[in-house]
């Protein structure tokens, strides 16, 4: 707690609502706390939770920007709360909302897991191959540059921020969004995967897939992992348009 009087007070306003509880009404609650050096929204929310309001719900797991649990809307921008430093906000006022487009659980908590699992299943997001792997044998060689390219796309943490930043998704529930298109591009590039572009067309060749994207670029501009969504969606679109 502040030994130093120079620490400023910040105001954090949180959307409160529990859809499970019939008596609960959506409301905004404001908490005032003292900002400490290097404070992140993770630290701030844990402080609110443990010191002011034990009933506040939110999701953190890794608190290091790698698991994708803590996405929320921070002053209008979907981002990872654990990676957001409070000092960024000059007026010291921060409003937190749960991520839109996902099923709301309570307060800042939403259900991303089931959506992402469905998406992974629908897009068959695993290697398809006829080859049998003998685990005792030396693995199949892969060009280092190709492996790296696949890795680049494999970095997605399913945080859902691209979906929450996509107006197309907001309007059209069944749109797979950048996360899905990126996933398909990842397998399209993977030399282990023997699927053809025709096969991928079956997965994303429609208005819920790549042709539904209107290039709004909210995904590209908010993705916390800086995935090359702009280029990879364009890449998939080019591939899919060429399918006979």
């Amino acid at each position: 707690m502040p030994e130093n009087e120079n620490y400023r007070e910040i105001e954090i306003t949180v959307f409160r609502y529990n859809p499970q509880d019939k008596t609960s009404k959506p409301e905004y609650q404001t908490y005032t706390l003292t900002e400490t050096p290097g404070m992140t929204l993770y630290i701030a929310l844990i402080q609110i939770w443990s010191k002011m309001d034990h009933d506040l719900s939110f999701d953190f797991v890794c608190r290091a920007g790698i698991c994708g649990s803590c996405s929320m809307v921070v002053n209008g921008k979907p981002r990872l709360a654990c990676k957001t430093r409070t000092s960024e906000f000059e007026d010291g006022k921060i409003t937190l909302l749960p991520l839109p487009v996902f099923k709301h659980i309570k307060d800042l908590s939403v259900d991303t897991g089931n959506w992402m699992n469905e998406m992974s299943k629908n897009l068959e997001s695993w290697i398809h191959t006829q080859e049998e792997t003998d685990l005792s044998r030396i693995e199949k060689p892969v060009d280092p540059a190709v492996a790296e390219e696949v890795f680049e796309l494999d970095r997605c943490i399913e945080c859902g921020i691209c979906l929450a930043s996509c107006s197309t998704k907001v309007m059209r529930e069944d749109f797979v969004g950048a996360v899905g298109l990126n996933r398909v591009a990842r397998f399209q590039l993977d030399p282990h995967d023997q699927r053809t572009d025709e096969d991928f067309y079956e997965l994303v060749g429609d208005e819920n897939g790549v042709f539904g994207c209107m290039s709004l670029m909210g995904c590209e501009d908010h993705c916390p992992k800086n995935l090359p969504l702009q280029t990879k969606i364009a890449y998939m679109r080019r591939k899919m348009v060429k399918v006979k």
Partner: peptide
């Protein structure tokens, strides 16, 4: 937590 958020991811 959603399985892909398990600590193994870290």
């Amino acid at each position: 937590v959603p399985v892909k958020r398990s600590h193994s991811a870290a």
